[in-house]
Design a binder for these strands. Structure first.
Lengths: 331, 331
DNA sequence: TCGAGCCATCGAACCGGTTCGATGGGTCGC
DNA sequence: GCGACCCATCGAACCGGTTCGATGGCTCGA
């Protein structure tokens, strides 16, 4: 474990010159620089992170705060997102660090410590459910941040899909094929993306002359989905097109409908969202909306790095494009 | 951003006393300690990570080095593993940091830097494929580590399922039901767990009087699996029981067999491994071996923390228990 | 020939904690 | 009454980098 003083001694220069040389400062003479680098090579020198952080004020690490670790969205989505974060972070010289807060309170506490302990240079807030407290701390501290999965808020940088269009496109793809009795199986009512998706769905319905299209708010997976479908049937409403906001939800619904003797897509066409691996494993295979999780991750870090590099600028607002993936569950 | 000197000044003590008080050292008088803590409270003091690291030599962070981020094993397995790592790390006061090396060379480079830059207090090596270089560095440096998904090596701490038994139990569950024409769709030949699983499978076959049971080594997913099945059929061998070493592989095989007009489990019983979410989405639902990824994560960090706390002890070797989960794809 | 200005280098201060050895006051035993 | 010992506290050194201001040698123009 050699220190910069060892390098300086071996290269026959002062510690400060060694530091400058190692950081490619133009002030040092070419020949001196070479000598220092050679010394560093022979001693296999690696600057200690903590020391570097302490004096430079940068940690070269970025924190991901995710309450769920992608547990709610089955399979590939989260790992693809994570991979996007990682790749861009690494290319920028940053390390990715991870915390899963248990609840709102812990989330806020972690965020406070993150800032106060100068522990990371920035934070990615995944699916934050809260509007006030924690977010306020971050903004007030001028701490570099980016929110994923949350509608834009004043003064806060966000990145997400255009959820209105996602739902619009998914719905339209079914109506274009002639279906006229749609149902949206939505998420819990209190999320911004849920609201956005309801709007996109209703807009698409209206565009095709279908008014008062039904929306079911589903909080939970299998049981809640079954209940929503049952309620729809009992209300005596017809159904020939089902839009769901996640793929597992679509799969559950598909099973339930099939068990009722309905044919997919003959009687009911179905489209999900996320393009999870799951889509490959159903019978028929499930159509879905690819949300490009990897790009979501990429974009999040890009936003963050820009923010870190340029200091506090205006809040950014990025949109990640989506694409429809048509499979057997659509006509 | 208050520093410990601010606390000391406000509490009317020296910096060293403040530090001792904040670290619950018994030498400081109760009343003094309270004064210091009160001061820390009013100023909302949080010790800066980098400074603490530099002087104490501990980083309070643990690194996960995973070449695949669980991309090969679809869905829940990786996130459950990650969650296990995270929870135990957090309870121990540690943060989890993540790197995905592109290849062997980068893996080794990252590991070297990890140690040399004193960047983490320990490392979890996920599915390491290499025997020599990187591992040697770690052991030589006496750096706390634990290998996941790798058969025990001398001097190295490992944690994994008992892969021989996993395959044994899966195979036996089919043979017990009277099947006598099994096939193992295994992973690539050069992994230790692949070898172990082949052995478990063959042992189980022998125990039921089935000798020379066939094993197909599959490197890849869909195409490779189809080819393996085709080769088996062309060899004119019968098939009534299929064991695969991952669930996605089982799903691909199930589809292929169904398209050939075979009934599952009537004609061929199938069991996979990992108990991925996927098992819920196939028709029929897939039996699998639950490998307890969460416990794997827990155990990995526990091993590591012990190692960090007690200094270099003997290499540990942990086994995580597995359980069979019987679903519709088995008789 | 002299001063301005640049270039390469250096010593020292600094970042914010932890820890070591020293200090002074009080208690106790002889 | 005095030394031994303990207790609480303190100042200073230290961890290993980065950075600021100073320095001395050199070139160049007047």
């Amino acid at each position: 474990m050699s220190t910069i003083r060892d390098i300086a001694r071996l290269a026959g220069v002062s510690v400060s010159t060694a530091s400058l040389a190692l950081n490619d400062d133009r002030r040092v003479r070419e020949e001196t620089r070479r000598r220092v680098l050679a010394a560093a090579g022979t001693l296999d020198y690696h600057p200690m992170r903590a020391a570097r952080s302490l004096s430079s004020g940068r940690t070269w690490s970025i924190h991901l705060l995710d309450p769920a670790l992608g547990e709610n969205m089955s399979s590939g989505f989260f790992t693809r997102f994570l991979r996007g974060l990682h790749d861009v972070a690494r290319d920028g010289g940053y390390t990715l660090t991870l915390t899963v807060p248990e609840d709102e309170a812990e989330s806020r506490a972690v965020l406070k410590r993150l800032i106060a302990e100068r522990w990371s240079d920035g934070v990615v807030l995944m699916n934050p459910t809260e509007h006030d407290g924690a977010l306020g701390d971050v903004v007030a501290a001028g701490f570099p941040h980016v929110l994923v999965g949350r509608s834009p808020v004043a003064g806060v940088s966000t990145i997400d899909n255009d959820n209105v269009r996602v739902a619009f496109d998914a719905t339209a793809s079914l109506l274009e094929a002639g279906r006229r009795a749609p149902l949206l199986l939505n998420g819990p009512r209190d999320r911004t993306f849920t609201q956005d998706r309801a709007r996109g769905y209703l807009d698409a319905c209206a565009a095709f002359g279908v008014f008062d299209a039904p929306v079911a708010y589903v909080d939970g997976l299998a049981d809640a989905t079954m209940r929503a479908l049952a309620a729809h049937r009992e209300a005596g409403r017809p159904l020939d097109a089902l839009v769901t906001v996640s793929d597992p939800q679509a799969v559950v619904a598909m099973r339930a409908l099939q068990e009722d003797g309905l044919r997919i897509p003959g009687d009911v066409a179905i489209i999900g969202m996320n393009n999870d691996d799951v889509t490959q494993f159903t019978n028929p295979r499930l159509s879905s909306v690819e949300l490009n999780a990897y790009d979501l991750g990429r974009g999040a870090i890009e936003t963050l790095l820009e923010r870190i590099a340029n200091g506090a600028g205006d809040a950014q607002r990025r949109i990640v494009p989506h694409t429809l993936v048509s499979r057997e569950s659509c006509p």
